[in-house]
Amino acid sequence: MNQFLFGFLLLVFLALPPVANLLESIMIVHMHMQMPLLVIAGFLMAYYFQKKYPAFFEKWNQRGYPGILLFSIIMIYWMLPRAMDDALTSQTVEIFKYISLPFLAGVPLRDSWAKLTSFLKNIVIISFTIMFIMMGLLYIAWPEQLCNNYLMIEQITLGWGFITMAACMVIYLVYNVLIDPMQYEGLAE
């Protein structure tokens, strides 16, 4: 219950107009801070939904595939340069952002992540890494403004933000490959 409360408070906090305006005024913060925080808010709230409607998740998201698919689609949509501009100019899209990221990305992510095999988890991370590298290169190298509401320098910054995120995920993957948890964790857990 606590988790739901924290998630809900986070969502409310992020929706406050001054907070939203501040976070959206910088491109990279908009994409790499506000959006992930919205997903985290949903992630925290998911616990409540899982408890309340266990049958629904069990029935429709048995092995986690539909959930992770939904999560990926929502994330891909918000990676479009267009979507960010639209969120700033259109009220409808902005509201859709505050609904889709927590509830259509955060909630299914939590439910699915626990159900996926570690192989599939790695596949998901690898695909996001590749996507992030490509988005990063696109934002860094594109000679024109991709988003009308943000300056060129912010676009390059966002590109490097994507690259660093990808680098972090690569480090995590390498860590997963090189370090066998069985060597350290044994059966005590």
Partner: peptide, 9 residues
């Protein structure tokens, strides 16, 4: 169910 859910998504 999984297939249907994936399709809808």
């Amino acid at each position: 169910h999984t297939a249907i859910a994936c399709f809808i998504v």
